[in-house]
């Protein structure tokens, strides 16, 4: 790439060419290509969303003839969404989702925050052992413990309850690990000062460390709610009645009721189930992304 050294006095034409190059036409072309690639990818990503929304307002007979015609001939949304909400207790499924997610998150935080503080800043004999257990726990997927937990819950006659849906997730070793990493960076001097001021360890945790960890707590909450709102495996295992069904389960129940007939209502149902998290994401987009980055890159 050794360019011939330009003459001492470039000609006017050459100068003009160089000026033109300062505008970097290669960059403009590059930017255009980049946009084309990104838009093509975006179409792939958005396709199901768009089709879901379009179909959810189509008339049933039009669904079968629409092909890839994007614009619905007539607006049938009210009927479809109404049908979805009447036919299946979708709102109840979502209520169940809220109860389950909230219950799981609260217990996870109550368990993980003190444990993380103990692991990060307190000296006690079994600390190294506890930390090893946490690290090991990080590698174990939740499906591994499903069998024994199912048997245990069955023997206690607790199947098909909110408790059964929530209990395997009360412990989040990931939360313990995340908060421990966060607390580890907290200056020891402030904790010493607080002890000298007469704070108990519990007060130090609640009044000093937890407020400082709010970004991490928010990030973890995003992570926890997203994964448990959308989780299918365990609710499918322990839930038998629609009464306690979480949104994904509800979607399956609804789909089975509607097999092959009313796609408009089915898509409306999917839109309803998907809406809460998507809307939350669109509003709190930054927090979501930051949450994923913080919880993702350990």
């Amino acid at each position: 790439m050794t360019a011939p050294s330009p003459a001492l006095k470039p000609t006017a034409g050459a100068l003009f060419k160089e000026r033109l190059r300062l505008l970097r036409p290669d960059r403009i072309v590059g930017g255009l290509v980049a946009h084309l690639v990104l838009i093509a990818g975006a179409l792939f990503v958005l396709l199901p969303f768009v089709w879901m929304l379009l179909t959810s307002v189509r008339k049933p007979d039009e669904v079968f003839t629409a092909g890839f015609n994007p614009i619905p001939d007539s607006f049938h949304g009210v009927e479809n969404y109404g049908h979805a909400l009447n036919q299946s207790p979708l709102l109840q499924f979502m209520g169940n989702g809220v109860i389950v997610c909230a219950g799981i998150l609260v217990v996870q935080l109550l368990v993980a925050l003190p444990a993380a503080y103990a692991l990060a800043k307190l000296e006690f004999r079994i600390r190294p052992l506890l930390f090893v257990l946490v690290l090991l726990g990080l590698t174990v997927p939740p499906q591994v413990t499903a069998l024994p937990l199912y048997m245990g819950l069955a023997s206690l006659d607790l199947l098909d309850t909110y408790f059964a849906i929530m209990v395997p997730f009360f412990l989040s070793v990931f939360a313990i690990f995340l908060f421990r990493q966060f607390f580890k960076t907290f200056p020891m001097e402030i904790i010493h000062a607080a002890r000298l001021d007469g704070f108990t360890e519990l007060e130090i945790l609640i009044r000093i460390l937890v407020p400082s960890a709010l970004p991490a707590i928010a990030a973890f909450s995003v992570f926890s709610i997203t994964s448990h709102w959308n989780d299918l495996y365990w609710p499918l295992v322990v839930t038998t009645s629609p009464e306690h069904a979480t949104p994904p389960l509800g979607m399956m129940i609804f789909r089975d009721q509607e097999t092959g007939s009313n796609y408009g209502a089915l898509m409306a149902g999917a839109a309803i189930i998907t809406a809460p998290l998507v809307i939350t994401f669109l509003i709190a987009q930054r927090q979501f992304v930051r949450g994923i980055t913080m919880t993702g890159v350990k």
Binding site: P48, W51, L277, F288
Partner: peptide
């Protein structure tokens, strides 16, 4: 772009699976 590409991460995969099933339906899918 970030929002668009991230959208599927937040959605309920079950619901979107039903949608994908429909989108790729050999008779009536787009």
């Amino acid at each position: 772009y970030q929002i668009i590409y991230f959208l599927p991460v937040t959605t309920t995969l079950i619901a979107m699976s039903v949608v994908w099933h429909f989108v790729l339906n050999p008779q009536i899918g787009p």
